[in-house]
Write a protein that binds this DNA or RNA. Structure first.
Length: 455
RNA sequence: GGCGACGUAGCCAAGUGGUAAGGCAGAGGUCUGCAAAACCUCCAUCCCCAGUUCGAUUCUGGGCGUCGCCUCCA
């Protein structure tokens, strides 16, 4: 079976490129996952939708996929200049009076719940950083041997001038990084842009490991090199992450992994656009964020957010607003009702529409075009059974639970009685009473829709 | 200061060198006791100024504006 050609935008080359899996038919993906010291917000989740849509699309087109998503349960300083930064895991642990392990476990569970709410399919592997400390130490050791790193007082730094391609991904250069460096340089670093591979443990650390350079903990970037190469090997097809990871995280990862491997490790880098809120980025640190569970509490279907995200190109920033979410919520519910109404009869997938749908997916995951096709199909004069069958097939990619019919819920106490009374009033053509009863039902949260009166 | 992205209808958001997908909202209509739903119809000339071109929203240059990264961040 010949697989269709798939073109994807590669951040590394800034072009759409044809996907050529190292192993024909199988696409192996590494995705930057969450740091589990806080709840994930919908902006984080949008980024995690990228590999989900990638996998669902590739599956639909006939490929097989294997995905690794790391769970970072260690480190991440608020500021790694000198030793003034605080470790986010430890801050959370202190504030919540729990151990780092408890914090990690709790937020990992919450993350998996959130992912489920958005119909993001789980990755095949969720390696935890703390389980790969030995691998990280080994990589740091190799980098030292190869002359890519140096030790200062228990800290190990990566020497970015030793890696000529440093800056390729983000289009920075070592010189420009010097010129544009904002912060106050750490005097222990040879170059202000050098980054930490291993950090000596400070006073109050509780997550500390022994290493050849003394007790400490790994730098932020080394974990992804260690986990990706340990599980997927030193060549794999796609690496995904948020746009904010391009620099420095992925730049550093390339410097680490490729210095050791001696060749390109990742064929294609994909980055998802950030979610904006009132003109500025939604971020944990800024505090302007929503959890998906909060949206749910406000009465929105979590998949309304998914619908919203599907309407925008994955690479573009997306402006989030309650208004926009409300529109998506309404749209997804209507679509489900229509699919329910069209179901039941016979019908198979419409080949012409499906071909266009596949072409959109293969063109750098053009889900906005796919969503426009959903509307076009719904409006078309194809048989209801064909529409239902086609949309249900597409939903394996869209993940909007289109098959889910109108929610069945119990009526509030007394509502059934009022409805009966109203029917009697309508039958007697006492419409004033009928309308009054409809108002009362509305206040109970029950909406009444009438069919035409018979005679 | 360095690197990058973007500026399309009330809101969100695609797209193309030849007069602009889609969703929500809005307007009119069909239907209905009324309403809702559904269905039909309508609703933009693409930040500004130059240039290239037979023709630019789409290409080039210059403005203005917004945003991201450069420190942890999806």
């Amino acid at each position: 079976m010949k697989l269709p050609s798939v073109r994807l935008y590669n951040t590394f080359t800034r072009r759409k490129e044809e996907l050529r899996p190292l192993q024909p038919g199988v696409v192996r993906i590494y995705s930057c996952g969450p740091t589990v010291y806080r709840y994930a917000h919908v902006g984080n989740l949008r980024t995690f939708m990228l590999p989900d849509l990638l996998r669902r699309s590739l599956d639909y087109l006939g490929y097989r996929t294997e995905q690794v998503m790391n769970i970072t349960d260690v480190g991440h300083l608020t500021d790694d200049t000198f030793d003034r930064g605080e470790d986010k895991m430890l801050v959370a642990a202190r504030l919540e009076k729990k151990s780092p392990e408890e914090i990690a476990a709790a937020y990992t569970a919450a993350f998996l719940d959130d992912v489920r709410l958005l119909n993001i399919r789980p990755a095949d592997h969720y390696p935890r950083a703390t389980a790969y400390i030995a691998e990280m130490i080994a990589l740091v050791g190799r980098l030292l041997e190869m002359g890519h790193a140096y030790v200062v007082g228990g800290n190990v730094y990566y020497d970015i001038t030793s890696f000529p391609a440093y800056g390729r991904l983000s289009r920075n250069t070592v010189e420009k990084l010097v010129a544009g460096y904002r912060g106050e340089p750490d005097p222990r670093k040879r170059h202000p842009g050098d980054f930490t591979l291993w950090k000596a443990a400070g006073e109050h650390r509780t997550q500390v490991w022994d290493s050849p350079w003394g007790p400490g903990f790994p730098g932020w970037h080394i974990e992804c090199s260690a986990m990706s190469m340990s599980i997927l090997g030193d060549r794999f097809d796609i690496h995904t992450g948020g746009a904010d990871n391009v620099f420095p995280h992925h730049e550093a990862e390339i410097a680490q992994s490729e210095a050791i491997a001696g060749h390109r490790v990742v064929s294609l880098w994909m980055h998802g656009g950030l979610l904006m809120l009132s003109g500025t980025r939604m971020a944990k640190s800024a505090g302007n964020f929503f959890r998906v569970t909060e949206l749910e509490e406000q009465g929105f279907d979590p998949l309304a957010f998914r619908y919203l995200a599907l309407q925008a190109k994955y690479r573009s920033p997306l402006n989030f607003s309650t208004e926009g979410l409300a529109g998506a919520d309404r749209a997804v519910r209507q679509l489900r009702e229509r699919v329910a109404a069209w179901s039941g009869g016979d019908g198979s997938v419409d080949a012409a529409f499906d071909e266009r749908f596949r072409a959109a997916l293969a063109d750098d995951l053009d889900l906005p075009a796919a969503m426009a096709m959903v509307a076009e199909l719904a409006r078309s004069d194809l048989a209801p059974g064909v529409k239902a069958a086609t949309l249900q097939a597409w939903d394996t990619v869209l993940g909007l639970d289109l098959k889910r019919g109108a929610m069945e819920r119990d009526l509030p106490p007394g509502a059934a009685d009022l409805i009966t009374q109203r029917e009697k009033a309508r039958a007697a053509k006492d419409f004033a009473t009928a309308d009054a009863l409809r108002e009362r039902l509305k206040k109970m949260g029950v909406r009444v829709a009438d069919a035409p009166l018979k005679d």
